[in-house]
Design a protein around this nucleic acid. Structure first.
Length: 359
DNA sequence: AAATAGACCAACCGCATAAGC
DNA sequence: CGCTTATGCGGTTGGTCTATT
């Protein structure tokens, strides 16, 4: 659709917003709410298109916006989420209350990408740069029969989000084979290009790109997908350690990220019981609570002993902007009680919500 | 002091999709 | 059911600021 129809009408202002315009929009929305964006400019007496008003409100005028620089924790979380979600800025932003997708996108493009590169990590794949440079082609594998069949699973791939360098960063790109390894996303000035790869000197491949795509949007709301026998691999998991510049990241289909051994916010990996557990990675990817659990020091046992099901599990949140990420199994009645007994227990909810900044 | 490069950020553009008719 | 309109999202652009030469 592109441009709003209203934009074709004559004499609409473009460019930076003046304080007067801000005042008008703010006053109007405060009084009446935004309702239909296309009618806002007229009602508020603005020579702007509704689209422009919406953007201004969302990115600048909204009262719940948190201005100022990103904290280290926020940056870490963005990197974590980007590894899982790719360039889905709105979904990432939903986990950072008070931050906009635009803001996060800008931060990523201007700062975080560079930081990762300086640490020897490819910001697109979250693989070591050496791996990306040396094994670009050799890493490519044919999709295995266990990977989701988009036809039979009734899933349609969405167009891949292209990054500026033309590569795709959809979560589906994280599907593939992992090699146990640890990384160190060291801050460049202190440990340029350093990484904790010594524990595994011969990483053959980390996770490989695959042309098979799955639609996370579909999955987030699809119960059927939950039960599909896809072999999804663990989301790339990383963590900056607050008292050190290092970030550990391990990728292996056999391992699960767990609570940090030496650090409250660090991660270590636990061996999963058996390979059959791999089928649950899809649930992990689909389930923000599971992801949060892993980010929040859950042990593999505690996670998998929960008998996590694809039942509806809603977490009420006062943050309206984040509700979508916390709801799945939406075919059921809204606002059902949390049903996974352990995962959805009061303590866990609070902890998990806190992990995502909801408390 | 001037020129240049790079970083940062706000806003625009166009696409996908939902909603309404 | 197809068309039109509205909204949301992600990529990109362009302006401003700051650091460097």
């Amino acid at each position: 659709m592109g441009r709003h129809s209203c934009c074709y009408k004559q004499k609409l202002r473009k460019g930076l917003w003046s304080p007067e315009e801000d005042e008008k929009l703010l006053t109007h929305i405060t009084k009446y709410g935004h309702g239909c964006w296309s009618s806002i400019p007229k009602q508020a007496g603005l020579q702007r298109c509704g689209k422009s008003c919406r953007l201004r409100w969302i990115n600048y005028l909204r009262p719940d916006l948190k201005r100022g620089t990103f904290s280290q924790e926020e940056e870490n979380l963005i990197i974590e989420l980007h590894a899982v979600l790719g360039n889905r800025w709105s979904q990432i932003a939903a986990q950072l209350p008070g931050r906009t997708d635009n803001e996060i996108k800008n931060l990523w493009n201007s700062c975080l990408k560079k930081k990762l590169r300086q640490s020897g990590i490819d910001p697109v794949t979250h693989k070591p740069l050496s791996e990306v440079e040396n094994g670009e082609d050799s890493n490519k594998i044919q999709p295995t029969p266990t990977e989701p069949n988009l036809e039979t699973d009734n899933l349609k791939p969405r167009p891949a989000s292209k990054t500026t360098d033309g590569s795709n960063t959809r979560p589906s790109d994280l599907v593939g084979h992992f090699q146990t390894q640890q990384l160190n996303y060291a801050a460049a000035p202190e440990r340029p290009n350093a990484r904790l790869s010594s524990s595994n000197s011969n990483p053959t491949h980390w996770f490989t790109q695959t042309s098979k795509a799955f639609d996370t949007n579909t999955e987030f709301s699809s119960n059927s997908m939950m039960s599909s026998s896809t072999t999804l691999l663990p989301p790339l998991t990383t963590a900056f350690l607050p008292d050190s510049p290092s970030m550990a990241a391990t990728y292996d289909s056999r391992y699960w990220v767990t609570g940090g051994a030496n650090n409250n916010n660090g991660f270590s990996w636990g061996l999963m019981e058996n390979q059959a557990e791999e089928t649950k990675w899809s649930e992990y990817l689909n389930n923000p609570l599971l992801m949060a659990a892993a980010l929040q020091n859950q042990t593999p046992q505690s996670l998998y002993n929960m008998e996590i099901k694809s039942e509806p599990c809603f977490l009420s949140s006062s943050s309206s902007s984040s509700n979508t990420m916390w709801q799945w199994g939406q075919s059921q009645n809204q606002e059902q009680p949390l049903q996974s007994p352990d995962l959805c227990g009061k303590d866990n909810i609070q902890r998990l919500a806190a992990a995502f900044g909801h408390i």
